[in-house]
């Protein structure tokens, strides 16, 4: 009995140290997505059980090796203990309970990391030996670098043109193989970047000769930076005017209320605005032409878009702050978002 008490205490002490060692050893890369947070929580539960069972077996083993070793000159055999059915049942049923508990946790975590946001930003990922390419259908942009806005779920729709590749950014944790074979083999991955920064996407499925070097840059920026990136990919190539307008939109804070990717915010989005029929408060409607936009900048409360509040933009007093030229450039930019 004394043996069991000593071993029990040692197991507890060992579990404490091993668990803390694992948790504090910086075993995982930076946490840069919502999915990573959920996964890392599960890792911590796993570290605990690993620490406990490792300690349980190793402490019993080491204790036996030290205490029950054959002393010099000792003859004969050990105690004739053939087994203990109750004990066997205990150490079958308890681990069974634990693994079922862990599997339930695992399923719940999976549910969390696969939660769908209907407003997710869709990106088509195309993997080919040994490069990555990213298409943003919303913006008509194709890029070799993966730019992502922070705190917004992205839905990656991935396909390969040749062999199996695998999408993995360690900081995001989640991983998904990318399959060849056409539309039926497009696979989806959802992730929500939570930290601004630069990361590397590395192919995780052996794909032939240059597999090692199949790497792409991943840039997570705030919404403004993302918009800037989109513009850089499109607008500025077309016209300096549009580019300047985009610059003012950022500098004067327009885009903190008016998104350019189609989502609703404090003010109406600019995407697809130009030329559309704008419903106004009171039931009338107006075509969003250059005059309407110019008027909305100079006198925001003159016509209020249905569902939005007056007074917010007029308080900014843009009529005094923007030159006529700047306003024309902004209009050109909004036009480009048709």
């Amino acid at each position: 009995m004394v043996h069991f008490v000593i071993v029990g205490i040692l197991v507890i002490i060992s579990t404490y140290f091993v668990f803390n060692g694992l948790v504090n050893a910086d075993l995982l890369p930076e946490q840069a997505s919502l999915q990573a947070e959920a996964i890392d929580e599960l890792f911590n539960v796993e570290w605990f059980f690993i620490a406990f069972f490792f300690s349980l077996i190793v402490v019993f083993l080491l204790y036996s090796i030290v205490v029950f070793r054959r002393k010099p000159g000792e003859e004969g055999d050990g105690d004739h203990i053939e087994g203990n059915t109750k004990l066997e049942i205990v150490w079958t049923v308890i681990p069974l309970g634990i693994v079922i508990y862990l599997a339930i946790l695992g399923a719940q975590t999976l549910g969390k990391i696969e939660a769908r946001d209907p407003n997710a930003l869709e990106i088509n990922v195309v993997a080919s030996r040994w490069t990555w390419s990213f298409e943003y259908p919303e913006y008509g942009v194709t890029s070799a670098e993966l730019a992502l806005p922070v705190d917004r779920q992205v839905l990656l729709r991935m396909r390969s043109t040749d062999v199996i590749h695998s999408f993995w950014v360690p900081e995001f944790r989640v991983k998904q193989d990318v399959l060849p074979g056409g539309e039926a083999f497009v696979r989806e991955l959802r992730l929500t970047p939570s930290e601004i920064g630069e990361y590397k996407l590395r192919c995780a499925e052996l794909c032939g000769l240059q597999h090692t070097g199949m790497i792409a840059n991943v840039v997570v920026t705030d919404a403004f930076g993302f918009n800037a990136w989109v513009m850089e990919q499109t607008g500025c190539e077309d016209s300096e005017e549009v580019c300047a307008g985009f610059q003012w939109a950022g500098e004067y804070g327009c885009t903190s209320c008016h998104t350019i990717d189609g989502t609703a915010s404090i003010g109406p989005t600019w995407r697809g605005l130009f030329g559309s029929n704008v419903p106004l408060e009171g039931g009338a409607s107006v075509v969003a032409d250059e005059n309407f936009i110019r008027e909305s900048i100079l006198d925001p409360d003159a016509k209020i878009h249905e569902g939005y509040l007056p007074g917010i933009m007029s308080a900014q007093n843009f009529a005094d702050r923007l030159s006529a030229e700047q306003i024309e450039e902004l209009i050109a930019f909004i036009k480009s978002l048709e």
Partner: peptide, 22 residues
Amino acid sequence: AVPTGVKFFSWVGTIWRGKISF
């Protein structure tokens, strides 16, 4: 993990109170 665990526990049970040589 369950049948594998049974093996580990049985191994520990086997050397417990034995007269072990190395």
